[in-house]
Design a binder for these strands. Sequence first.
DNA 1: GTCGCCGCTTGATATGGATCAAAGTGTTCG
DNA 2: CGAACACTTTGATCCATATCAAGCGGCGAC
Lengths: 252, 252
Amino acid sequence: MNMRDDQLAMREARPPIHARPKTAAHDREITAALRTVHALRELAPAVMVRLAAGAMRLEVARGERLFDASAHCPGPYILASGRLALSVGNPDTGHKVIRLAETGDVIGLSAALLGIVTFASAEALVDSTVILLPREALVERARRDAPLAFALASLAARQARNLALDLEAVSLQSGRQRIVQYLLASATTGPAASPAVLLPAKKSIIASRLSVTPEYFSRTLHELISAGAINVNGRQIVIRDAARLRGNTRPD
Amino acid sequence: MNMRDDQLAMREARPPIHARPKTAAHDREITAALRTVHALRELAPAVMVRLAAGAMRLEVARGERLFDASAHCPGPYILASGRLALSVGNPDTGHKVIRLAETGDVIGLSAALLGIVTFASAEALVDSTVILLPREALVERARRDAPLAFALASLAARQARNLALDLEAVSLQSGRQRIVQYLLASATTGPAASPAVLLPAKKSIIASRLSVTPEYFSRTLHELISAGAINVNGRQIVIRDAARLRGNTRPD
DNA sequence: GTCGCCGCTTGATATGGATCAAAGTGTTCG
DNA sequence: CGAACACTTTGATCCATATCAAGCGGCGAC
């Protein structure tokens, strides 16, 4: 790894994360966002309303960070819209994207549950909206609301599993295999058309997510093109031959 | 990675995991084991008793597997005594130890909570005793017992954090750095004597845990000896010069 | 327009650590 | 007490991927 950090390196505590005033409309909006979280969907309406009442809506502009690593975490955030990159590392070790969060994802949960600092930083890849569930109130509520606590347990368990799968991929597969797998896994098979992937971020971000350098990612993509497995046009990747792609797990 | 699997490869459903009959003495023993789990310690005595009542005590002989990867998981297990290695991978991708479980650790929790198959296999490194909390009963109870559900959430969150830290280490640090860090982190600083580490398993297991090959682990250890940073005698490692060890993060 | 800049590509080179192959060194067991 | 193993060490070699270093194309700002 070890990618340069340049600009991003040192800007802390910038203000432009906006909180919006609370109105009835916002409460509805927040409730709607809560419902995008699968694990919370089954909760009783009354509980949802209570959660929404204590929640805060924040806007994070593209390029801003919702929080830094080793920061106090005021509570879990629910991504209502937009996209965030969670990455570990610090200026001198470099960075690695461990997760790309999409609408309905929860971030900062384990730090919030454990009441400890975050281990990753969260940067908005596009203008995004998040809902903060303030930690104290949430924990207080979860300690007496079993279904809620159980939902949080499921969320945390899901995250543990995903991290373990990532760890397995990084440890046991080659960079090329990870790239191929990523393409196959995130291909949306259109009814008639060939399956395709629209990369959700700059290639360098995807590369980091896959634990390879941007250069290696680029090269590998081009090798896959030469092999006739895919076509690439900017962030749009079309899978021409899934079988060939699947077979293409070792450099040639 | 990519270590050979030989014998271990294909044995399923072997009987030699013994369950012991239930008696009052065993109930007390199980309760005691539950209390070794930090997250559960605060639970009301009544809840502990209930959990213990439904629990089963299993013995896993050294070399046996408590479960394989992709197996149905009948519930979380609490390690009452002994030591287990949890590893991901399969016969052809090779294996990687992702965790060494010690007394008081909980394993199979996320699979149990999510009701899905395990992603790792668990092998006993020494004769061990585990307590199984049958999934159905536990989930049933947690859905109406908030403190219990919250404790499970904390456990899962802790595991997620540990996995994330591992992922960070594997992605951002060199093999040598991981080895050095491991030694520094697990050194028990005796009052007067120099800090020392007693490796909890064969070196090849530790190597896998640190995501390096046994050969590389061996070599690195010997380089650290030459550098005057440590002394090695079997599984016993004495840290002679912590500062030098800490500085010794790049091959020389 | 055209000037910069940013993201991507492409090339050349370097290297950490894996892999393959043997030779120790215990340690168990008949 | 020696054979058979299991683990570790040591040596030689290789290679997937990082790193360093330019070029290049598009697009947003003036």
